[in-house]
Write a protein that binds this DNA or RNA. Structure first.
Lengths: 334, 334
DNA sequence: CAACCGTCGGCAAACGTTTGCCCATCGGGT
DNA sequence: ACCCGATGGGCAAACGTTTGCCGACGGTTG
């Protein structure tokens, strides 16, 4: 277990000064090619890799990015993490994954602790309120996903548009009364979707009854299912797939045929949406691309040679039809 | 976007030397309590957080750990990541998540790049061969999960034992001929399970036919299902849940009733195992605990005041019975 | 031949923190 | 009056890297 070689070792081995070794490895053309080759050769032989700490200290850039998610076990974030990580790695950055545990305090604690150490942060579905978020956005470069912040770059996934599309799909199947099992009041997505549904409902001549709020997890699905049944709807749009899973659980338990008696639509197309029977019709969110885009935006902001405006990227969704939606059951009209 | 405060700022604000400020914040009792309070107060007001880079350079410890997994999208690793991360964070460590992309080169590249920067590594289901793994284990502190390395600490999940239990379960349901849809030849787990199955089969009076190797992912399931059908077995043990999902897909497609005509057992109890219909009977691996234990082991090795032997922790599994297993169909004996 | 320029290498400072060492002060024992 | 130990604080070096600056050398131009 020997100490890793440093630039000093490489320099000594190739008979040059440390500064020359540094430049040979990082500044192409700055040193004589012959010398550079000698240095690179020595580095390779010694198995040299630069210390990020040393680099960070001297350059002020750590090439580390914090990736903060409210709950690492929620499959919704897997795609985002993956997309972000892939893009960051392509640029030689590493990321530190932070589980904020759905808690504002934990999230702020992490940001505070990491601020001197990371170059920036990607906040996915932050639980911070607007004021805090704005304050933090002045503190260091950050990009949000699905959480618009004034004068700040961010990525939005247009699930609201997808919700409109899903409603049209249901309307085309003959559904006339549809429930929306909504997410947390604090969710910006939820507010937008409710607004879209209102106007789309009018246009399509469909009645939409809003339910909830529900916590977007499987355990809350049964309550949503029961509420939907009580409202006498023939289809339910769930805030996310997890909630939809729970709804399917409960409908199966109560012996309600899906999609024969009730259609169910999820949102996000997370892992598992095509595992459940019947397969879940859902609004597919390009999660990986969202992570990708978030990383792109952050890297652009981090690049000193960059103009530096703020951009908001909105990603489209598309409807994936599986088995959980079907034609509306015939209703007895009194 | 102002530069984060440093120890120098804190020291200036509280009228002490940098060294005193450092000690006030990290060495309880070393400075006068009154002074310490003043320093801490200043640090709080300024929103000071130590720079990990600075710390790392001076102390030689970065408090960062690399967490290497072959594929971040495989739900098998979610639990491990979560468990490891939680334990590390409790000790003030952060982790860098590395996706080795199922590639030996990528895995080694990451290890090489990270070696000067992290204090140690957790390797989950490493794809490295024994020699390389042993070589790396001499280079810096590491702990493996599900991959024993001589003279090195590691965590093993006893899926082999679970497999024996699963076979007993099937035997008790009357199955007399069972297939094992195995994983990659390189997998240590797979080899152990085959060995256990051989002796258990003899003891239980069950015939076990080995199939495979299959790549442990859903897409490979159909091939396994067809092979099992061809062998005329009444039950199949899959290398992991992903493979089992694919098997269920194919059986449904071919109109084979599960568990009426064929029982299916998975392994790991990943997210989704209770989503599929019928629910998947599976060997539940305590993944989060495994991550936890791995982090524990690594932290112990990292602690300079630690004895420093190597330990192997073996975690038990348990069988979760869901709907995918049932009594064996009556067979026509010629 | 002088003035100049381009190329290439080295020196040393800087980044933020920890820590070994030293010094000043103070209280108490002889 | 003297010494001693304990306490609390500061100085400065060290960690590994980057980079501004300078200097040496050789070649070209006037």
């Amino acid at each position: 277990m020997t100490r890793p070689p440093t630039l000093r070792d490489v320099a000594a081995a190739s008979g040059v000064a440390i500064s020359t070794a540094s430049r040979a490895l990082t500044k192409p053309g700055r040193v004589n090619e012959r010398t550079a080759i000698r240095v690179r050769e020595a580095a390779r032989e010694l198995g040299y890799a630069p210390s990020l700490s040393g680099r960070a200290l001297s350059s002020g850039r750590t090439r580390m990015v914090a990736l903060v998610v409210p709950d690492v076990t929620n499959p919704y974030f897997f795609g985002i993490v993956r997309g972000t990580a892939a893009r960051l790695r392509a640029d030689g950055y590493v990321h530190v994954l932070v589980d904020a545990e759905e808690s504002v305090e934990a999230e702020e604690r992490a940001l505070r602790a990491l601020r001197p150490t990371v170059d920036g942060a990607v906040l996915a579905a932050s639980r911070l309120d607007d004021d805090r978020l704005t304050a933090w956005s002045h503190e260091f470069p950050m990009v949000t996903v699905n959480r618009p912040v004034p004068d700040q770059s961010g990525v939005l996934v247009d699930t609201a548009g997808g919700t409109g599309q899903a409603l049209a799909h249901l309307a085309s199947l003959g559904h006339r009364r549809v429930a929306y099992a909504g997410g947390p009041r604090a969710s910006w997505s939820d507010r937008r979707r409710r607004a879209v549904l209102r106007t789309a409902a009018k246009r399509l001549g469909v009645e939409v009854v809003g339910l909830g709020p529900f916590v977007p997890r499987r355990e809350d699905g049964p309550a949503a299912a029961d509420a939907a049944l009580h409202e006498g709807v023939t289809a339910v749009l769930a805030f996310d797939d997890l909630l939809a899973f729970g709804i399917l659980d409960r409908l199966a338990e109560r012996g309600i045929d899906v999609p024969g008696s009730m259609s169910v639509v999820g949102c996000d197309d997370v892992f598992g949406a095509d595992l459940v029977r019947p397969g879940l019709t859902t609004i597919a969110a390009p999660l990986e691309r969202a992570g990708h885009a978030a990383a792109d935006l952050l890297l652009a902001r981090l690049d000193p040679a960059h103009p530096g405006g703020t951009v908001t990227v909105e990603l489209p969704t598309h409807l994936v039809i599986r088995g959980s939606t079907g034609t509306a059951p015939l209703r007895v009209v009194r």
